[in-house]
Structures are given as C-alpha cells and as structure tokens.
Amino acid sequence: MRAARLSVVTAVTAVTALAAVTGCTSKSDAKDGDRVIGVTATDSTCVTSKKEISAGHLELAIENKGSKVTEVYILFPDDRIVSERENIGPGTKQRVTAEVKAGDYRIACKPGMKGTGIRQNLKVTGGSVAERDPRLDKAVAAYREYAQEQADATLPLVATFVKAIQAGNLEAAKAAYAPSRIGWERTEPVAESFGDIDPKVDVRADGLEAGQTWTGWHRLEKALWQDKKITATEKTLAGQLTTDLTDWQKRVGKAEITPTSMANGAKELLDEVATGKVTGEEERYSHTDLIDFKANVEGAQKSYELLKPVAQENDAALVTDLDKQFAALNTLLDKYRPNTSSYAFTSYDKVGAAGRKELSDAVNALAEPLSKLAAAVAK
C-alpha cells in the first residue's frame, strides 16, 4: 500500500485509463501536439498546457521540475480517481496515454505523494471513443468476472482472520492474516478507483494523512507481530475491516474497466511490488511480503493474458518479451516456496540483500515491457 494509490478503473460514468508508454500516441485521433497536454510539476505548482480538449485519446507529457517525487492524477470533481502515475522522480519525464469521455475532470500533482494535490481543471468536450476490437470487450468482461470472484473469495478468508482476533487467538490470527489478503492484492487497483476504501483497509502507518485514524490490515498486523497482543481495540478494528471489505465486494461490480486500464493496472501492480514488497515495507511486521508479491504478479499476469491475443497481433515482439519476463519472475519466486501448489513462502526477513536485489532486477525487467502493453492494445 502506498500513501497515494493508482486506479485502473473508473466509476460507471466514465471511460479511462492511463497507461505507461514512451513517446506514443493512440490511434489516428492524436495528431502531432493536438492531443497532448503538458503537465509541469514542481514542489508548489502544477501547470497544464491545456484546460480543454475533445473526447477521445489524449496524451499527458509530464515533467517533474521539483525536488520531490510526485504523482499526477486525473480525478472526477468528487475526487474519485480516474487514474494516476506515481513515483515521478525529480528531473524526470513520463508520457502516458488516456481515453476519456466528455465531462469535467481535474489534473492534480501531488509533490511528496501526500495531501490532496495541486489541481487544475480539465474540461473534456463532445466527441466519441472509437469502437474497439470485440476481443477486447471479451477481455474486459472476463477481467470483471475475475475481480468479482477475487472479492467474493476474500470475504470468507477475512471472516476466519477476524474470528481468530475476536476469540483472542494470536497464533490463529497470524496464520489467517496473509491468506485473507491474496484476493485484494491480485485486484488491488480496482478498489482504488473508489478512493475511500483503500485508505481504510490497506494503509501503512507512514501512509496516513493528517488526522486519519489508522485502521485495516496493517494496524492489526502490528498488533499481532510487534505488540503481540489482542485487545478490545483490535477486536473492534477487525469488525471494521469486515465492514469495509464487504463494501468493497459490493462495489466491485460498479466499476467500469477498460482494456487500457487493465494494461495500466498490470504495470502498477508491478510498481506495487517494486515500491513495497521488494523493500520489505509492506509487511514490515509479519514479513509475509512474498505472498503479496506473488498475488500482485498473478493479478498483473491475468490482465496480460486476457489482453494477449490483441497485443500479439499488434506487437508480437512485446508479447515474446513479456512471456519471457513473466516466466523468469515466477520461476524466481518459486525458489522461495517449497510447495509450488501452496502460498507458503519464505519469511521475507530471511531473504538477504543478494536475494532482494535479484527479485528487484526481475521485477524491473518485467515492468519495462509491461509499460508498453497499453499502447499495444490501443493501436
């Protein structure tokens, strides 16, 4: 979990997705600079080159001229997340494509990846998004079903976790903790589009905003592994976790998912691994990071496999590379679980510096070509 989250889906009122691409515009509706919005971010400003653009494909050309790592968001007026690009380092540039329908949006820069951001209005006027390949509609339908299945399967596992906490059974709660998170980690970006669920259930202590009460899995993780006790507070928090995740389960079906958002989300799941799991920050008390790691990779690979037929046709070399890198990363992960049919992984505090670097290198090797998947399916 990051202090600020990526969304790969939108609410039903819009079609979206940002996807990491390098110097690439989408389809014939992007002519030269007509469809490009420049975003210049500093530590105190967020300047956009356009305030209005017609519906369809557009491109954000982002440059961070500040001294802090920043994020750039596209938001609805009510703060629902359309999509974002995180970890834009000082002095770096990123180009991302988007597909939007007519409506009002906000472009927000978040220096330091904190707070509500510095915002600029963006008005998207009339126009239409071109009809897409029927195979992509099939991929979207299959991914929607997958996301719902993961949410549905999570609730019984959470119930086991919560039951152990409410019974005061420390060891049973520890055993149930990581399994209860797998479905969430596989489809995590879906929840982030709603904005309010992720901060309740998956925030870390260092990701809290001013005035925010710490709730969710990681608050309970700390109690179980560091504090080594279950009090009335933890029992109450466990009940709240059930409530919040039930809300997530019910809202998954209200999210609109697009092919580009699926591809973008796959890349962001790899970024989740790079910024949280490989570093050991995500599960800093339980050291169950490799379980989350595997679930993130599985979620990314699911999106890829569903989009693969179209990507193969548009960019066969990219598909060859992605197949190779997914296989290499999965093989490496299998070194850390004795039984590949189970989710019993080595405790991450037992993975030394050399092993962590090897994992990091494999993640980066996959993330780079994965950033091109959205462009491949948008052709």
Rank of each mutant, 00 (worst) to 15 (best):
A210M: 00
R219A: 06
K250W: 00
V297Q: 15
T233R: 10
P309Y: 05
D321K: 15
K250I: 00
P259D: 11
A238N: 04
A274T: 07
A210K: 11
K222Q: 12
A300E: 04
V319T: 10
A255F: 04
K308D: 15
D323Q: 13
D323N: 10
Q249R: 12
A316Y: 09
Q325D: 10
T233A: 06
T236L: 13
G265I: 01
T320C: 01
T288V: 05
I197R: 03
T236K: 15
H287P: 14
W248K: 01
G216R: 14
A205E: 10
L237H: 07
A223M: 13
W225T: 07
A205C: 01
T215L: 01
R251K: 13
A311S: 15
E282H: 15
D196E: 04
K302F: 07
E313H: 11
Y285Q: 04
K267M: 12
T215M: 00
H287K: 12
D321V: 09
R251W: 01
A274D: 08
Q312V: 11
D198T: 09
A274M: 08
H218K: 14
A210G: 00
R251C: 01
L270P: 01
S286A: 11
K235H: 06
L245E: 05
K254C: 01
Q312I: 05
K277T: 03
T320M: 05
L237R: 06
Q240M: 09
G265D: 12
E209H: 03
G207S: 08
D206T: 13
A327Q: 15
I197P: 04
G239H: 02
Q240G: 02
A274Y: 07
R219N: 03
E234T: 06
